[in-house]
Write a protein that binds this DNA or RNA. Structure first.
Lengths: 223, 223
DNA sequence: GTCTATAAGGGGATAGAC
DNA sequence: GTCTATCCCCTTATAGAC
């Protein structure tokens, strides 16, 4: 959460503590990005204010615009940073099996459940980006395409190894799974204490894998 | 979609065509509500502008505020109206069985797939309302509680009749199903032409009902 | 690297004319 | 029922001092 923070402290403070201006400037940049996440989460992109974000970091709007040339630039860099974090953490290597893929998605769900601001931001921006004119629209279109692509590849490997039934519509399965994760996040953000997002996703993944595994009952799969 | 509309036309125009001022005033009110849906969909609540909404209806901001005393009042009335439409259409009577419940949810999905603006608005507002200070926060908290309650009741009846296995966690199932619908809507709004939301939901509902039905294979259900 | 000042514009809500 | 005028506040981006 963005708490008050030292609002009267000038940017000059803390200079002497660091090793050099580079490290200090870089840390300030990261603090701006963190604050921006919280503001995009609460206000969305359009209604967020550079001055309010800057205030949370302890600088002025003019000072913020030294690090990011525009509001849209700030949004892009926020998205790039979070995507890089996700990619390294959960999609670093391709998944050998469907079970491995879903185990990683469960860890991602646990990770999201520990970061309210970040998750709330993704809910809001993914919804806002439905507008084709939204600056994050291309990002989210690409993001879902990549997510479905990575998941489909791992599911296809499981089909080829005989773990999953032949004829499984792997893309449809990936899209459904992405939907479950997003939808659970919506409900979780509305009630972070009361709604158990992780348990719900685990239950979904377990039931899904069981129902399409070749060890199963031979029920026909859906398209 | 909100198209340009007669921007220079004064509110006085068309007065003579109607039967009386009541009907005309009421129709104007509905047009404002329709325009507001599109604006909340594109901009969210905070970044929407009463002047821009009024412009789409062909009046000024001052004229709009004659019908709605504030921006928040407009939001509340938009939500009340859409909820009333949903309730009448899809939750008019309690569902006797789980299959009946899911058949109705499938019709709701088809209905949503025919109304891009309305669905986009719900995506954006449901995400924004994650902020406890958002004017729609109480509405969405209540909305999900009621949805889960109605679905759980119908599922419980199916458990009692032996259609569903004993011990099924009906609330968890309802929450998961709501999540699937919301998540599919996110992806659909990002690509309304290419993403087949209805097929995805049908596949989900079919597989879910099959995997928890007593006619099934006796697999243990998830919590 | 951050500040202040400024430009040029938009925001919601109110008041009173018609 | 709608308009216009007004109040006071907020918005992004730029320019130049330090």
């Amino acid at each position: 959460m963005v708490t008050g923070m030292e609002q009267k402290e000038n940017g000059r403070a803390g200079r002497g503590a660091g090793r050099g201006t580079y490290a200090v400037g870089d840390e300030r940049r990261l603090r701006i990005l963190d604050a921006a996440v919280e503001h995009f989460a609460q206000w969305g992109f359009h209604a967020s204010s550079l001055a309010r974000i800057a205030k949370d970091v302890g600088i002025t709007q003019g000072g913020l615009l030294h690090h990011f040339r525009s509001k849209e630039d700030l949004l892009v860099q926020v998205l790039e940073r979070t995507e890089q974090q996700d990619a390294e953490r959960f999609f670093g290597k391709d998944f050998a099996t469907a079970a491995e893929c879903y185990a990683s998605l469960l860890r991602l769900t646990e990770y999201n459940a520990a970061r309210l601001g970040r998750t709330r931001m993704f809910n809001v921006l993914a919804a806002e980006a439905g507008d084709p004119g939204h600056p994050a629209h291309p990002y989210f279109v690409r993001r879902y395409a990549e997510l479905v692509s990575v998941m489909s590849a791992s599911l296809r490997r499981s089909v080829e190894s005989g773990e999953l039934r032949d004829g499984t519509d792997v893309a449809a399965m990936a899209e459904e799974t992405a939907a479950v994760m997003d939808g659970l996040q919506i409900q979780w953000v509305l009630d972070p204490k009361g709604f158990d997002m992780v348990s719900r996703f685990r239950a979904y993944a377990d039931r899904l894998l069981r129902s399409i595994t070749t060890e199963g009952t031979g029920l026909p799969e859906q398209s």
